Amino acid sequence: GATAVSEWTEYKTADGKTYYYNNRTLESTFEKPQELK
């Protein structure tokens, strides 16, 4: 079976905060997504 690849990509803001962006739902969040835990 195919492994589900996380759609979340980790980015940093200009002031160094980490956030996560989902390229399928176009959602962004500062909290670590469930799929990455």
Rank of each mutant, 00 (worst) to 15 (best):
R24S: 08
A4H: 13
W8V: 01
S28G: 09
E7R: 04
W8A: 00
L26C: 15
P33I: 02
D15L: 05
F30I: 05
E27N: 03
T3V: 14
Q34K: 11
K32D: 04
Y11C: 15
T3E: 13
K12A: 05
L26N: 15
T29M: 05
S28K: 14
K17T: 11
T18L: 09
Y19I: 11
A2T: 13
K12W: 06
E7C: 09
T18P: 06
Y11S: 05
Q34C: 15
P33G: 02
T25K: 01
T9D: 04
T9I: 13
R24T: 10
K12D: 03
E10F: 04
N22K: 01
N23D: 06
N23K: 11
T29P: 01
Y19E: 03
K12E: 05
K32I: 10
K32W: 03
K32G: 03
E27F: 04
T18W: 05
Y11K: 15
K37D: 12
A4E: 12
Y19N: 02
E31K: 06
P33L: 02
Y19S: 03
E31I: 14
Y11G: 06
E31R: 06
T3D: 14
K37R: 14
A2N: 14
R24P: 01
S28T: 15
T29K: 05
A2W: 10
N22P: 01
V5P: 11
N22S: 03
E10L: 06
Y20F: 06
D15P: 01
Y20V: 00
G1H: 15
G1W: 14
K37M: 15
F30M: 08
Y20D: 00
E7Q: 06
Y19G: 04
L26Q: 15
K37I: 15
K12F: 07
E31F: 07
K32M: 13
K12Y: 08
W8K: 00
K17Y: 08
N23V: 10
T25M: 01
E35P: 06
S28V: 15
E10A: 09
T13L: 06
T3S: 14
Y20T: 00
T29D: 02
S6P: 11
Y21G: 01
Y21L: 08
P33A: 02
E31D: 11
E10N: 02
E31L: 09
L26W: 07
A14W: 07
L36I: 09
G1P: 13
T13Y: 03
D15Q: 05
E7K: 03
Y21V: 14
K17L: 12
A14I: 11
S28L: 15
S28W: 15
G16C: 10
E7D: 12
W8M: 00
S28I: 15
Y19H: 03
T25F: 02
K12R: 14
G1E: 14
T18V: 12
Y19V: 10
N22Y: 01
F30L: 07
A4R: 07
Y11I: 11
N23A: 11
E27V: 10
E35G: 10
R24D: 04
L26P: 01
T29R: 07
Y21D: 01
